[in-house]
Design a protein around this nucleic acid. Structure first.
Lengths: 250, 250
DNA sequence: GTACCATGTTGCAACATGTGCAACGAAGGG
DNA sequence: CCCTTCGTTGCACATGTTGCAACATGGTAC
């Protein structure tokens, strides 16, 4: 493991939050200003840092590479048009989260038409137990993988409706697997709710989930549930585009 | 400048293109496998790399940081809803490109409803002379900045309609400044055309441009020009949201 | 079944590379 | 005009990075 690279990455983490001056960065790392400067110069030369008013931020080369990476995820280009259609029709925020190794990560996001934007971000890992997409994926995982998730989860409640024990979560997941869709009843932020359905790959395994999210004040769960036929159809359409055919259900 | 960090960034560039195996990466850098491995392990630990089937790709932490950075650009959150509205209404691809230092960079992109997607990418620098957004920004720059752009440009033609000399470009920019909008008549790829208008900040300076882009076969320039009243209104609306008022024209 | 090749991984010694220091220049405030 | 603060440069030292050789693993051919 390379100390120098570790420091460089740590710098990026630091100024991604907000632009930072050289001095700040040096003290943050606990190194001499000259050391920080040389790392920054290297990052800047590579387009990973960019000076702005005497401070440094994330450079555009890094942004472009990250977007390129998302485009390369097989799911993103396939699913995107479907999500846009959903967003168009209902005006609420639409998410696609994908199972990647031991995480469930937002891969696409279509903002709703309202003035507020959800805090979620593409590339961010979701809380499996407090989000619709998380539960929609968990519900269909094989025993072993699901258990690995269940034991790693931090069950501290975010809101009054949060699921706070593996047992409760397991029961909820069974219910979800049976009826074919999941919901988030303000379990992460009490003023936000959503409905979600799974997405399958060519081998019939659930690899992702699509959700429609809205402020409770704008569209309560009862209303979101009315979108389920369309949402389910969208989930199936994406699955089909990925090569799935109904008869190959595992 | 740090050689180690340089190598690490070079690795990211390399596997962002497509997933790469350790051996490939080592020979690409011209270093020993063990060296490449340690750099990769560091990148992986920091979430900047991610193993996938014996190869490495861009990690999700890096993606999340890049998205965070774009959200922090003042323009992006302000302009995004306006662009979505345009995309909704016409179904064509909408771009927002911002002037950042000595580059014009795509900051937001709303994909059209067609099956094809434009190759452009958020974070990518645009060709100033062959794109609508590029020319719409150039047209309003102060002499000095504009000239710096004009001399740095590579005037090799991309298509039959490309502008191939500083003189021709300068004339075109004057025309644009006069009428208030720019167009790209297949100057980068002959089957793509677009119209673009400038966006001003609170001080009245042009800092960005919005464009509607479409395949010529789908919507030729004559049709795109019909969107100009709406597009102009959108540009003005974004400018107003940035604090601009018509009387502060410089 | 075995031999072979390609691939990724670890321990170690050598030295190239990154490090902190001190000194300098520039910019801004009292 | 002095003083402080911040970024930048040159240099000597030693720390962290490097390549090597040996090992481990998995796949392929015979």
């Amino acid at each position: 493991m390379s100390q120098t690279v570790e420091r460089a990455l740590s710098i990026i983490e630091f100024f991604a939050d907000r632009p930072r001056a050289l001095g700040e960065i040096a003290t943050h790392l606990g190194v001499h200003k000259s050391t920080a400067l040389r790392l920054l110069q290297t990052l800047e030369a590579g387009g990973f840092a960019r000076p702005v008013g005497g401070r440094y931020t994330v450079g555009f080369r890094m942004v472009a590479l990250a977007h390129q990476a998302v485009d390369h995820l097989e799911l993103h280009p396939v699913a995107h048009p479907h999500l846009v259609r959903l967003g168009d029709r209902y005006g609420h925020t639409v998410h696609l989260a994908q199972l990647v190794d031991d995480q469930i990560v937002y891969v696409t996001k279509v903002d709703g038409r309202g003035a507020l934007r959800m805090r979620s971000r593409v590339g961010q890992a979701v809380n499996p137990q407090t989000s619709g997409v998380g539960k929609a994926v968990l519900a269909y995982l094989d025993e072993q993988t699901r258990d690995r998730f269940l034991t790693r989860i931090d069950y501290r409640p975010h809101t009054a409706t949060s699921i706070t024990s593996p047992e409760a979560l397991r029961a909820e997941l069974d219910r979800i697997a049976e009826r074919g869709w999941a919901e988030d009843d303000g379990e992460f932020e009490d003023f936000v709710n959503c409905v979600a359905v799974p997405v399958r790959d060519a081998r019939g395994r659930v690899v992702a989930a699509v959700s429609i999210t809205a402020l409770r004040a704008l569209a309560p769960l009862e209303q979101l549930r009315e979108y389920l036929p369309d949402l389910t159809e969208t989930g199936t359409a994406i699955s089909r585009d990925l090569g799935w055919t109904a008869d190959r259900r595992p």
